[in-house]
Design a protein around this nucleic acid. Structure first.
Lengths: 168, 168
DNA sequence: CTCATACTTAAACCAAGGTTGAAGTCAAGC
DNA sequence: GCTTGACTTCAACCTTGGTTTAAGTATGAG
């Protein structure tokens, strides 16, 4: 069970995989995509520092929340680079997902309510229905409530919670 | 503007595209995938019957609700084949999405609430966090609440609302 | 030193939901 | 009956989030 060791301060890709429950191929993929980083040994093998485990946990958690990797990468970029991130740092960037999640819940609820309305009248047609309307110009009859179903802006990382305090 | 005509009872792919706001390539794709059908002219061109517009509207609406095409196809299969679907038929199959939508809303709310908890403690770590736990076996410490984040069973078309009454 | 494992890379592949392009055919206005 | 635009098919390509495979290299136990 040397794969679970991580007794020193660094982990191989296999050790990190075992600890995080994420496949080595996925970890290499994350590294290619710039979500995690590693030191290389003289023989070109990866060595991960301990806090990478938390970083991977953040990535997987965010994915469970439905956030695309590109967005996760951007938000990870808000972490301080000059020191190991603290609990507070992680909490701060986790806040980024809250608004996003709230927005998505609201959008789904709106969609569901409209569906309920529309089931009542059986009106799922291009021309009349608030749910189905693609973009009304084509129906060419009156200014419909076009923004009822806005593409949710979900996952735009506009959240820059606070300027991350640098240094210790 | 002959593309918008549809004065007769049938539409070409371009006309249906113009009316529905869905690209011709997408309509051909839907047909390949069995979500819509068409008659062919002697010259092998597609002609869509009028109710295809509603069918396409249903498809797009369902996609907005986050339903995959494969599931939409299955539910479309619940429509009567021996007659043009009525308002009631559409309403009936639209009901299929409701439970699904409710489930997804509940899941997202649960995730958000857990995130709120976890932000409080800054605990997004593999070993402790309810949100981050990948599959607890690896953490190897006690029976955690593993099903807090279940993969939502969303989009299983178990909804067979009523046997569709055949004939007019 | 040797041998088994674990590591390295690049490239191919998967699913979904299409788009794009090439090469050829149909339909309609003049 | 010709020309033009809309149609046809097939195949390749795109994105996201990876996995799989092949060929080769490092590391560490004995």
């Amino acid at each position: 069970m040397t794969a679970l060791a991580w007794d020193a301060t660094e982990a191989t890709v296999g050790e990190l995989a075992a600890r995080s429950g994420v496949a080595p191929s996925a970890l290499r993929f994350y590294e290619r995509e710039g979500l995690i980083t590693s030191r290389r040994t003289t023989g070109n093998q990866r060595r991960y520092s301990r806090d990478t485990l938390r970083r991977v946990a953040f990535i997987r958690t965010s994915q469970k929340l439905g956030i695309p990797l590109a967005t996760i990468r951007e938000v990870l970029g808000l972490l301080p680079e000059d020191r190991t991130p603290t609990r507070e740092d992680w909490a701060r960037i986790s806040e980024c997902w809250r608004e996003d999640l709230d927005q998505r819940i609201r959008t789904l609820q709106r969609l569901r309510d409209n569906l309920t309305d529309c089931i009542g009248c059986g009106c799922l047609s291009i021309d009349r229905c608030r749910l189905s309307n693609p973009y009304d110009e084509l129906g060419s009859h009156g200014p419909g409530p076009r923004r009822l179903i806005e593409e949710d802006p979900a996952c735009a990382p506009e959240c820059v919670p606070d300027p991350v305090p640098a240094g210790g």
